[in-house]
Simulated scan of single mutants.
Amino acid sequence: MKRVLAAVLALAVAAGGTLTGCGEKEKTGKKDEKMSAAFICANLGDKSFNDIAWEGFKKAETELGMDIKVVEYGAEKSKMEPALVDVAEKYDIVAFEGGEFTEILEKHYEEFPDTKFVGFDIDPTYQVKMPNYFAINYMQNQGDYLAGALAAKMSQTGVIGFVGGAEVVVINDFLLGYVEGAQHADANVKVATAYIGDFVNSPKAKELTQVQMTQGADVLHQVAGAAGLGLFEACAEKTGIWAIGVDADQREYFAESNQKVADVILTSMLKRNDIAIFNILKETAEGKAQYGTLKRWGVKEGVTVIVKNDFYRQNVPQETQAYIDELEGQIAAGEITMDTAYGMQQEQFISIRESVKP
């Protein structure tokens, strides 16, 4: 009966017509000695979280000889469940982002005892009860503490900006770190905050960025996936403005295609999905991965840190660079801690956010 359900859901994927795959030819069964891994995401091309995750898969293909595939389910969440069931039938390891997929997996994991599942950006309070599930929580509040401190140090107006995708706990976790890091650097700093409502509406991100500029923000940070590209466009159209990217080294993505945009991206707060994904794929292949657990990775592990490329070193004063390096070391050593949106009462979060409003 379980296999019948899997077949029905797989047919639903095919009928939907919007899922696309790329990569090597998919396996026809689990008996092949060549280990396979699939990545399910809304879409590639965000120049951010999904793209950098895919880099980890490609590294596993090159260095470990894995058969890899990405499945893009698009904007329709109804396609998430059939996508998960479909790839679980065919691949040894299936990776995805977020709590929604975890809830879906809870209904089906027993149907695929030989398949390993990897979820990232998982709530740190989540209790893992599935023996074939490896959950990863990124401590993005740590990395954004550094981003906020840098923004405050680089600001000439004392006002910085934050444009998030949806107002959800993971984005608010970024924001708390950003605000507290900024306040560490400048107790009087103001932080303009806005939410797009999704992670795809780039024009709205641009509009919200322009509004924050009228409030005095001269260093602005986007945490909005593909939608955040609109923030870069707005920053590139005005002089004296810096942008901070997210997840990947976003300046590098634009260095060849759009130099004007690239040259406003001072740094990015990384969530090194590529490192995390490659490591878990490698450990799984070696039989060393501890499934049935949740791991928390942050500054200490080099997973949530800011980019310190040549452009950063050329444009950030040496004194500020030294200050950021010192903060990074203190966070890694546990000497500096910060609030997290996970488990925080909404009233407390709103109070913190409103206390720094311009």
Rank of each mutant, 00 (worst) to 15 (best):
G292I: 06
A42N: 14
A248R: 12
G21P: 00
G164T: 07
K190W: 00
G329I: 09
A333N: 11
Q210P: 00
V118K: 01
F120K: 13
L11Y: 10
I352R: 11
G148V: 12
K31F: 12
P113A: 07
L220V: 15
E301K: 05
N273H: 08
A217H: 00
A341Y: 04
V168P: 12
H108F: 15
A14M: 10
Q321V: 12
G161A: 12
I241K: 03
A276P: 00
I324Y: 06
G164C: 09
E301V: 03
E256T: 13
R272G: 02
G245I: 09
I52N: 06
N258E: 08
I40A: 01
R251K: 15
T209P: 03
K116I: 12
Q156L: 10
P82A: 07
N279P: 00
E63L: 12
T115C: 06
P82I: 11
K204E: 15
T18G: 03
K153H: 06
D339Q: 13
G158D: 02
M269E: 12
A332Y: 07
A37H: 04
Y195N: 09
R272W: 10
T267S: 14
A166L: 10
K2M: 09
E347N: 09
K77D: 14
A6Y: 01
T320R: 06
D173E: 05
G343S: 02
A192D: 13
I241S: 01
I331T: 01
N172Y: 09
G228M: 05
K129Q: 13
C22L: 14
A289I: 10
I241Y: 00
E335R: 15
L44C: 02
L11M: 12
G56F: 01
A149K: 03
D339E: 07
Q210F: 04
I93S: 00
Y323W: 08
E167H: 05
Q142W: 07
D67Y: 01
V70D: 04
C22Q: 15
G148M: 08
E335G: 13
D92Y: 05
Y145I: 04
V8S: 09
T214D: 14
S155K: 06
Y126D: 08
S155A: 09
V189S: 04
P317V: 01
Y312D: 02
E110W: 00
I331D: 00
V261K: 14
